[in-house]
């Protein structure tokens, strides 16, 4: 079976214009220490001739300083390195208009965040939190961010590297792509339901089953890409779509909030918008009693 699992480096060449990837250079920032955050690949490439920042996982790298980092795991150095690449992107285009700000392409193939004791002592949550805030800031500053899932997009690592993008694309599951919090077998054990029962339920409700098609139904993935050859064109198309929305100040259609609306449209998450609307109504009803000077 054809698959890009563990081949983030090869995927860069397939998604971006061939031979344009300049690793370790983003705007004015040079990443010159080869031992720093090796599980993260950052750099600059061209996509249909336009400059883009590329951030991906290197499944072949092992971080000798932090041995929990291998096979595409995002450790503390990796997460901060990815955040640095995002801030360098924002800095490079700070004076440019929205239509000119370079896109960020996230190539996603990561099984998790560093699960170690040292990581907890120093704050793994802080490192990945930093990367998410950087992406959210870049997104709000006008940079189109498109994530392309080529392999594993697992739980907290997907939250960190993917779910803050404007649009998320995924190769379909025939390429071995995995998007989930936990595989259904583990969920079955934890919620104490037979796997057969869960599989049957998943046909009608995509909310706990593993796979890009279920995230698509929930609005968590904008588009499924069905061939490797299509990735380049589909990523470029989404960069253009996202940019068009930003130029028109239609940011609400993008990012996590936009995927919320998409989830309702596709019938996968219909309660969410009702709850948010009800909360807004209830707040409006009492707002004046909390305004300055109210008794």
């Amino acid at each position: 079976m054809e698959s890009l699992l563990g081949q983030g480096r090869a995927a860069i060449g397939l998604i971006c214009d061939p031979d344009t990837f300049e690793e370790n250079q983003v705007g004015a920032k040079t990443f010159d220490d080869p031992d720093f955050g090796p599980g993260a690949m950052v750099g600059t490439a061209k996509l249909d001739g336009q400059t883009v920042t590329v951030i991906g996982n290197d499944a072949e790298a092992f971080n000798e300083k932090f041995p929990v980092v291998y096979a595409g795991i995002i450790g503390m150095e990796e997460a901060y390195k990815m955040a640095q690449a995002v801030y360098a992107t924002v800095a490079a285009d700070v004076a440019k208009a929205k239509a000119e700000k370079r896109a960020i392409v996230l190539i996603v193939d990561t099984p998790g965040n560093g699960p170690g004791k040292t990581e907890e002592i120093f704050g793994m949550n802080k490192a990945t939190g930093a990367y998410q805030l950087a992406l959210a800031e870049a997104r709000m500053a006008g940079h189109p961010i498109v994530a392309m899932v080529i392999g594993r997009a697992i739980s907290g690592a997907f939250l960190c590297h993917g779910l803050q993008a404007d649009h998320i694309l995924s190769l379909d599951s025939s390429f071995g792509t995995m998007i989930h919090v936990m595989p259904l077998t583990s969920i079955s054990r934890i919620v104490k339901k037979d796997i057969e029962v869960l599989e049957k339920l998943a046909e009608g409700n995509p909310v706990f089953a593993a796979g890009p098609q279920f995230f698509h139904r929930l609005g968590g993935v904008e588009e499924i890409v069905t061939t490797i050859e299509d990735m380049h064109a589909v990523v470029a198309k989404h960069v253009a779509e996202v940019r068009a929305c930003k130029v028109k100040d239609q940011d609400d259609a993008l990012g996590p909030w936009g995927r919320g609306s998409l989830g309702a449209e596709r019938g996968g998450r219909v309660v969410r918008p009702e709850v948010i609307a009800l909360l807004e109504t209830e707040m409006d009803a009492v707002a004046k009693t909390y305004l300055p000077g109210a008794a």
């Binding site: 997907f158 936990m182 969920i187 934890i190 995509p206 929930l218 968590g220």
Partner: peptide, 8 residues
Amino acid sequence: LHEANAGL
């Protein structure tokens, strides 16, 4: 985990 994807 009962609604893992929506929770994520």
